[in-house]
C-alpha cells in the first residue's frame, strides 16, 4: 500500500515538472491534467473523497478542457526567444528544493501529530453550507476577479489607446 502511495506521489512530482518544462503547451496541459488526476486519487486514498472528486472533476477535467480549447483557438506567431538561463535555473532550483525538503520536512512531518478530528466531519452539505460558508463568498470573489480580468485584458482597445 505504501509503495503505491509513494508511486503516486512520484508520478505527481514528475508530471508537475513536465507541465513546467515541456515546450509544447498542449503536452504541458495534458501533463498537468495527469498530475491532478494522480493528486485526486491520492485524496481518495487519504479518505478525503470530496477533495478528490473536486480535484478530478474540476482541475483534471474542466480546467484541462478550457486549456485545450484555448490552445486550439490560438496559433503560434513567431518564436519567443527565452533566456537560456531559464532551462537550467528551474531544474537547479528544484534540486535545491528537494534537498532542503528532505532535510527539513522529514523531521518536521514526524513532529506533526495526527489530526484530533476527522478532516471531513459531517455530510458534504454540512461542511459546505454550515462549516465553510464564508469560503464560498471568497470563491465568488475569485471567480469574479478571474472573469473581469479576462474581460479587461482581452478588451478591444478604444480609439484613444
Amino acid at each position: 500500500m505504501m509503495a503505491l502511495q509513494i508511486g503516486l506521489l512520484c508520478g505527481l512530482v514528475v508530471f508537475s515538472l513536465l507541465a513546467v518544462l515541456l515546450r509544447d503547451i498542449l503536452k504541458a496541459a495534458i501533463s498537468l491534467a495527469v498530475a491532478s488526476l494522480l493528486l485526486g486519487i491520492l485524496f481518495f486514498r487519504l479518505d478525503a473523497p470530496y477533495a478528490g472528486a473536486f480535484e478530478i472533476s474540476v482541475v483534471a477535467g474542466l480546467i484541462t478542457v478550457l486549456f485545450v480549447v484555448t490552445i486550439a483557438l490560438t496559433k503560434a506567431e513567431g518564436g519567443v526567444h527565452e533566456s537560456r538561463a531559464a532551462a537550467w535555473i528551474f531544474p537547479l532550483f528544484f534540486v535545491v528544493f528537494l534537498v532542503i525538503d528532505f532535510l527539513v520536512m522529514r523531521r518536521l512531518i514526524g513532529q506533526v501529530a495526527s489530526l484530533p478530528a476527522p478532516a471531513e466531519a459531517g455530510t458534504f452539505g454540512q461542511v459546505l453550507w454550515k462549516g465553510r460558508t464564508f469560503d464560498l463568498i471568497a470563491q465568488v470573489g475569485v471567480i469574479f476577479a478571474g472573469v473581469f480580468a479576462v474581460l479587461a485584458l482581452f478588451r478591444k482597445r478604444s480609439k484613444h489607446e
Binding site: 476577479a145 473581469f148 480580468a149 474581460l151 478604444s158 484613444h160
Partner: peptide, 15 residues
C-alpha cells in the same frame, strides 16, 4: 477615461 472599459476597471478595483 483614456483607458476605456471603465466598468471592467471599476469591477476589478471593487473586487
Amino acid at each position: 477615461e483614456h483607458y476605456g472599459h471603465k466598468a471592467a476597471y471599476y469591477a476589478l478595483l471593487l473586487i
